[in-house]
């Protein structure tokens, strides 16, 4: 299943010679993420995947360079005004607030919700399969359900860019597949530009269209996911994935 429904109004994300350093580790990102595509971002631990997302989200500020979202430099905007939503690996929800309120925060940071907002929240919760669980607290949900709540909030926030920082890393394989399907479905409807950081090659193969491979704080290679897994990907990527060429056995098995 290839979701991508190309729309002209999509929003590209571009990091223009963005320099940043963290604890003496320098990063330099110069890369463009195509509008309305799902781009998988892969690379070894410490290669800068999360840092890249933080720069786009606005949790970190570049030392130099520009962060362009839809052609506008957002480098100095606070996170909440940037046209992005983000889903983290964990801690996406406020533990003391109900599912409904957690989603509602995507509409209003003071939870002053209108009837329209409430309808949108209910619809989003239905969409991610959590209808009927509005009043639950996060601790009464499974790990997968919590990530669904986060996804519901992304829906009501309705921003053109979605950043995913290993959101399914702590889920089991079956749940993970369900979530990927859900994500692909949502993307097909909303056509946001998705930056998807993951360690799992299957994630990229399953829903990714483009690939950005990071190594040592820099973009080492970019291209289509298909090319990367065809064995024509860069040497560093093949080393990262393991096995000689053309992807790992793990993946080969998954296909059958």
């Amino acid at each position: 299943m290839t979701p991508a429904k190309d729309t002209e109004k999509g929003t590209p994300v571009r990091l223009d010679k963005v320099a940043f350093s963290y604890s003496e580790m320098p990063f330099l990102f110069d890369v463009e993420f195509a509008a309305s595509k799902i781009t998988a971002i892969m690379g070894a631990s410490g290669s800068g995947k999360s840092t890249l997302l933080s720069l786009v989200a606005g949790f970190e500020t570049p030392q130099s360079g520009r962060v362009l979202i839809g052609g506008t430099d957002v480098g100095s905007s606070p996170p909440s005004v940037r046209p992005v939503s983000m889903v983290f690996q964990e801690n996406n929800l406020f533990a003391h607030l109900s599912v409904e309120k957690n989603v509602g925060l995507g509409r209003s940071p003071s939870l002053s919700l209108t009837g329209v907002d409430r309808a949108a929240i209910a619809e989003a919760l239905d969409r991610v399969g959590l209808g009927g669980k509005e009043k639950r607290l996060p601790r009464e949900l499974s790990g997968g359900e919590r990530q669904r709540v986060a996804l519901a909030r992304v829906l009501v926030r309705d921003r053109p860019v979605l950043l995913l920082d290993e959101p399914f890393a702590s889920l089991g394989p079956a749940l993970r597949d369900d979530m990927l399907d859900l994500l692909a479905g949502v993307h097909a409807e909303q056509a946001m530009t998705v930056l998807f950081v993951t360690h799992q090659p299957e994630d990229a193969r399953r829903i990714g269209e483009n690939m950005v491979f990071l190594d040592n704080g820099m973009v080492a290679a970019t291209g289509s996911v298909t090319d990367f897994f065809d064995g024509t990907g860069p040497e560093a990527f093949r080393r990262y994935i393991g096995a000689g060429s053309g992807g790992s056995r793990d993946i080969a098995r998954k296909r059958t």
Binding site: P79, S80, V84, S110
Partner: peptide, 14 residues
């Protein structure tokens, strides 16, 4: 909560 609040624009009294 820090990043979540920054992301959702929850600040001050809220």
């Amino acid at each position: 909560h820090e990043r979540l609040c920054a992301q959702l624009g929850i600040s001050g009294w809220n």
